[in-house]
Nucleic acid binder design. Sequence first.
DNA 1: ATTTTTATCAAGAACTATTCTAAATAATAA
DNA 2: TTATTATTTAGAATAGTTCTTGATAAAAAT
Lengths: 150, 150
Amino acid sequence: MSQNSTGNIKQFNLGEGHRMTPQRRFVYEVLMNSKDHPTATEVFMRVKNKMDSISLATVYNCLDALVGVGVVRQVNVDREPSRYCGNLEPHAHFHCENCASVEDISLKDGAKPSNSLKLPRGAKVEKFEVVVRGLCPECALSIKTKKQLN
Amino acid sequence: MSQNSTGNIKQFNLGEGHRMTPQRRFVYEVLMNSKDHPTATEVFMRVKNKMDSISLATVYNCLDALVGVGVVRQVNVDREPSRYCGNLEPHAHFHCENCASVEDISLKDGAKPSNSLKLPRGAKVEKFEVVVRGLCPECALSIKTKKQLN
DNA sequence: ATTTTTATCAAGAACTATTCTAAATAATAA
DNA sequence: TTATTATTTAGAATAGTTCTTGATAAAAAT
């Protein structure tokens, strides 16, 4: 318990046999302060500003640990680099094919996307992931504008 | 039009500037005859039985071409190798965390998973992907049985 | 306190799915 | 027939991620 950069970030421990290290705390803090969905490399660059000695491999380790404990979500879109997300509320993701941004999409109140599926009888659902692909509002607008100019 | 292994598989052409080659036809046939969701390497191995000279790079090329034309779907689950699917009906996928199988899940009649989302105003949706993760009926059963034995 | 055990870190090597390159081949257009 | 364009192939290259190893540090046991 020697180092503990007590900030405004929720405290938690990682359970039996797992240690809350400065590296893990920085990675967690970066994710909580990021509204975008950074990749491991992006997290690495942001943490490096606070702790220059950290390595990319350690960021991967920390992300794995945090995902394993369930305080962080790993988001995969197609085969692009994994992104990480501190929003644990059930939600979907919108992936813009033009600017490659990934944004949270919230669910309509009480709605569950899985309700529209004929799930196989006897299957045990752990979680599900909904990814919408297309053009985000900004890109949809700018592309439409560009077309008008031609 | 010199080679055309006219089988029981739907005929189609790939549009201006694209040629229907024996390799592409074999890749397509393999997908139409596969109920599982083979990876590129699995498709490669299956096609190789019919055409020994084909290379993995060609299988990737053919899959890209078929996906591009829209007669085949590419399915990504987490960061596992891409899988390919000849079922063009709108449907979701179930991914078993135990046996790693991927199965189609059909939608309830008239249901659209996107109806439960608060899509950002102005966004242009191209397509969306729903992946359910958990244990398939067989694995759920066998794991439950194994627990009882302990 | 000191030792022992266990977990974590860091740097770089290794891995793997996929894409790229370049030369050969084949199909289409001129 | 010639020229153009698309495709195939083998292997090299790429990129995200994981693995390996030795060092460090924290926790547990003595």
